[in-house]
Every structure is written in structure tokens, then in C-alpha cells.
């Protein structure tokens, strides 16, 4: 009996230590990420769903978003995309590929002092619109352009 209890105590103590260790080594770095990644947005299948996942209702077309992509991409696995927002109070820019299995590719948050500009490379499964979605203080705006893909970027 005594042996069982001490064993139980030992296990409980070990459990606490393990939990403490996990808290120190794992939870702290994760909590250092200012915002938790929005999983729902990354599972969205349309522009409206992405806007909804970020808490908006709808996005308006804007000519103040400069979206730079190639007209034709020979290799859909590497399609350069640059987005610059001229909209006042731009908080974030998201890059969406309309025909990809999940439309949202990347979401960038701009703290004060950082230009509302970003350039990256994305995979495009098939000929599709690329959408740049911008969140400002007064709502969501987007711009879109078509990229023709001769070789798909997903699979293969």
C-alpha cells in the first residue's frame, strides 16, 4: 500500500514536472506569436469565406491595390506575386489563388512603420485569378488578375 502511494506520488510529481517542462519549452515560444494562425481562413474555398474568416462581411473591388503577377506562368509551382496597397490605413494583405484547393495562400500583417507592400512566390494549380485582399480600417478591398498556367503547381 505504502509502496503504491509513493509510486503514485512519484508519478504525480513526474507529471507535474513534465507539464512544467512542456509549459516552459513549448508554450512560451508559441505564446510569443502575437496572433494565432487563422486556420479557418486557410481552409476557405472562396474570397467571401476568407473575408468571413477574418471577421469581415464582404470585399469591394479597388483600383488602389497594385497586384503584379506574370500573365503567363510556365511553371505553376513558382509564380511571383507582388502586392502594394495605396489604401490608407492598410492593416493586412492576403494573397489568394481562386482555383487552388484552398484559396488562401498567404496573409501578411503590417505593423505601423512597415510599408503595405509584399512580394513572394506561390503555387498555382491551374489557370486562375490571383486575388490580393487588403484589410483597412474601414473594411476589405480586393484586386484580381488572371495568370495562365501551362504546367500545374500542385501534384506532379
Amino acid at each position: 500500500m505504502i509502496k503504491t502511494i509513493s509510486r503514485r506520488h512519484l508519478l504525480a510529481a513526474a507529471g507535474r514536472w513534465a507539464a512544467a517542462l512542456v509549459a516552459v519549452t513549448v508554450l512560451r515560444p508559441i505564446s510569443a506569436w502575437a496572433a494565432e494562425r487563422n486556420h479557418k481562413a486557410f481552409e476557405a474555398k472562396s474570397l467571401d469565406d476568407v473575408v468571413g474568416a477574418y471577421g469581415g462581411s464582404s470585399a469591394r473591388l479597388s483600383t488602389d491595390i497594385l497586384l503584379t503577377i506574370p500573365e503567363i506562368a510556365e511553371n505553376g509551382a513558382v509564380v511571383p506575386v507582388a502586392v502594394e496597397s495605396k489604401l490608407a490605413g492598410t492593416r493586412s494583405i492576403s494573397i489568394l489563388v481562386e482555383k487552388n484547393p484552398s484559396v488562401l495562400s498567404a496573409h501578411f500583417v503590417f505593423p505601423e512603420g512597415t510599408d503595405p507592400y509584399v512580394a513572394t512566390r506561390v503555387k498555382v494549380a491551374e489557370t486562375s485569378n490571383i486575388i490580393a485582399l487588403v484589410q483597412t480600417a474601414d473594411g476589405y478591398y480586393y484586386a484580381q488578375k488572371l495568370v495562365k498556367v501551362t504546367l500545374g503547381g500542385c501534384g506532379g
Binding site: R37, F42, V78, F108, V122, K123, G153
Partner: peptide, 14 residues
């Protein structure tokens, strides 16, 4: 100071 934060999906290129 954080100057950029990004959340990515798997469709960002290799």
C-alpha cells in the same frame, strides 16, 4: 519590435 507577421498555407512555393 515586430515589423512583419505572416501566416502561410501550403501553397506558398517551395
Amino acid at each position: 519590435k515586430t515589423v512583419l507577421m505572416a501566416e502561410w498555407g501550403p501553397s506558398v512555393s517551395r
